[in-house]
Design a binder for these strands. Structure first.
Lengths: 125, 125
DNA sequence: CATGAAGTACGATTGGAGTCGTACTGATGG
DNA sequence: CCATCAGTACGACTCCAATCGTACTTCATG
């Protein structure tokens, strides 16, 4: 169970071993734009993805299939790419799989409190 | 100068006198949806509007013209309506003018910390 | 009552985002 | 080496949001 969050307290940050594959292209911390991040999070499916990563990650990154989303693969590619390009997730290639994690530290540094809102979101709530 | 905000501390909340015109149609507090609110805030012009209301309000609601936005009137109507329908602002009709305020208490109750992010936003920053 | 000002209503246009099918690529395992 | 599996690339389609011009409404004021 991940640590609970209060205010700008950091989420559970799983350390990244030093021998990971290079991340796919992503904006730097200083390039994160609030309007872009909010736009990426204004979609229920993407909120679902980020929330699940925040609450149910188990110390490693997760591939697209782990989420159990009932959508065509090409749709999922689209949404995961949108999250990465907005700077919300980091993706690394592990053989065939492209695994995602939330950029908790970067987002907490730039937009403190934002991830708490996502974590406490619930669909139709 | 408005009070500074920390975490979920309330923004400066200007009391609403009891003899104000009825607000235009808006969602109730319990109807506020995170994805809708984030979508409405994912636009630079609307971020500008909300931020200015948060930082420069002087104890009363402000009409469309107060913001000094260089856009056609019909565009401004569109954006102010979007903010109101998302539940971010409340609008009241004063004769010819339709004045706006941010629903600080409602947003703080449902999405603590969100308005701090908006207040600390800066364009091209 | 005529004029001006604040803002809406409506409609047209445009661009971008969501959705998805199909074809493709690249790694893995028999 | 071939099949399979994860995921991408590309393109088509649809739909909505952003933008704005024009006409209209409404109130205030001379």
């Amino acid at each position: 169970m991940p640590a609970s969050r209060t205010g700008t307290t950091a989420f559970t940050v799983f350390p990244e071993p030093s021998d990971l594959p290079e991340p796919l292209p992503e904006p730097g911390v200083d390039e994160l734009r609030l309007e872009t991040v909010l736009g990426a999070l204004s979609d229920p499916l993407r909120l679902t993805i980020v929330r699940k990563l925040l609450l149910e990650s188990e110390g490693f990154d997760h591939s697209c299939g782990w989420f159990g989303l009932d959508r065509p693969k090409s749709s999922l590619t689209h949404h995961f790419k949108a999250l990465r390009e907005a700077g919300i997730t980091r993706q690394r290639q592990y053989g065939l799989e492209r695994r995602s994690r939330v950029r908790v530290e970067d987002l907490d540094a730039r937009f403190p409190g934002l991830l708490d809102l996502v974590a406490s979101w619930s669909p139709q709530g």
